[in-house]
Amino acid sequence: MEKQYDAVIVGYTCVDLVPGFRKNSPVTSTSVFFKPGKLIEIGGMDFVLGGVPPNTGLAMKKFGKKVFLNGLIGEDFIGEIAAQGLTRAGVSFNMIKTGGAGTAFSIVLAPPGVDRIFLESPGCNRVFGMEHIDFEAIQKSRLFHFGYPPLLREFYLNNGQQLQQMYGEVQKMGVVTSLDFSLPDPESESGTVNWPEVLERTLPHVDIFVPSLEELIQTMVPEAYAKIQSLPGDTEIVDKIPLDLVKQVGQRIIGLGVKILLVKMGHRGALLLSGDISSLNKKAGIALEQDKWNNREILCGAYKVDKSKGINATGAGDTAVAAFLTAVLNGECPETAVKYAVMAGRESLYCENIYKEIGRWEQLAHKIHVEQNELKCFL
């Protein structure tokens, strides 16, 4: 049965307020850059659609896929910016408006040379629940992608009851299910959630899981994450996490029923793990070569970054996911799919506005063909 949409992208929606830091002054340490009393001159402020539906959805549209975006916005000025932005992008969407809370927004501090810092106001995402999800649109789609549970209160309350219920309902539709995450703030309500238990109950209903390295370790093995975080030195935590631990946790996730796991590791590249993917090919519009995808372990190194062209890392993970999901929908082999993810993540670093500036699918393919990176296949 032919589907109306390639993917329905649902979840946390916001507007990013991005100060324009000077590109020619790379930062080596946020502690030195953001000093009390220091004046930092910026080149303006960009208002950019953010969150999973705009970031991943619009990138997938740029990559040639028919997408439908679903989320919740407020009846306020920022909500008008979000709706107008999606309308201008020419994408199908159902952004439900609520008067109960304002539209979510984030102030993204992303000076060149360091990872970004978010000042986040979740707004109406705190009341976004199953009643706001367009299941009719999902039924018409090949793939359902959702994010970010730690910022969506209704989906982590009661040990993630709505999260598990939602994925269970979508799985019954014969639609491929995909999940993205965000780091729980330890100082917020979501930081008190038993995330290992929530994921153990939810992941059996998830086909594709695409967390970042930090998200994977913090949510699945919080004790190990805390121990790694406390290690001395100025090294980024991404570099402190041992690859063996990532593989160990990854295999545990595959054991829970996830068919494909993509771990986004920033400048370390990406790790892909898979189990038996035969059940995916029983779903409408999916045709993966099982002998190439079954029980794989692939480490893909990052492509070289031209720091002189780097603008910021906002949305890099979501763009990488968009490319990976597009490759899966296209029936690419796992080696190629993970390369698309890593290349798209790299290319997004050069974009002030990802939706306008990211290359199309053919351009990504050409860059992959021309540029070299390290690819290790363990299984």
Rank of each mutant, 00 (worst) to 15 (best):
A83V: 09
I286P: 06
P112R: 13
E335C: 09
L109R: 02
I96R: 15
A104G: 15
H267A: 13
C377N: 13
G123M: 09
S274F: 11
E352S: 08
I117G: 02
F324P: 09
L213N: 01
V176C: 08
E335G: 12
Q165F: 11
E357H: 06
K35R: 14
L179E: 04
S308G: 14
G57E: 05
G266S: 15
K62I: 02
E80T: 14
G129P: 03
G301A: 07
P54W: 03
G255D: 07
A82K: 02
P204W: 06
F146H: 01
A337M: 05
A313Q: 07
T202Q: 02
V108H: 05
G50E: 07
G168R: 08
D76V: 12
E332C: 06
K376V: 12
G85Q: 09
V246W: 04
P26R: 04
D185L: 01
S230L: 02
S212G: 15
T177H: 05
R142C: 13
V67P: 03
I81Q: 01
F118D: 06
G317E: 02
L231G: 10
L379P: 10
R268I: 15
K227A: 09
P26C: 11
N159W: 01
P242S: 09
K61W: 03
K309E: 00
H205Y: 14
K309T: 13
K3C: 10
G168Q: 08
S188F: 00
V91H: 11
A313N: 10
V370M: 15
I40H: 08
E352F: 00
K292S: 09
G317P: 01
G44V: 04
V52D: 12
K97H: 13
K23S: 12
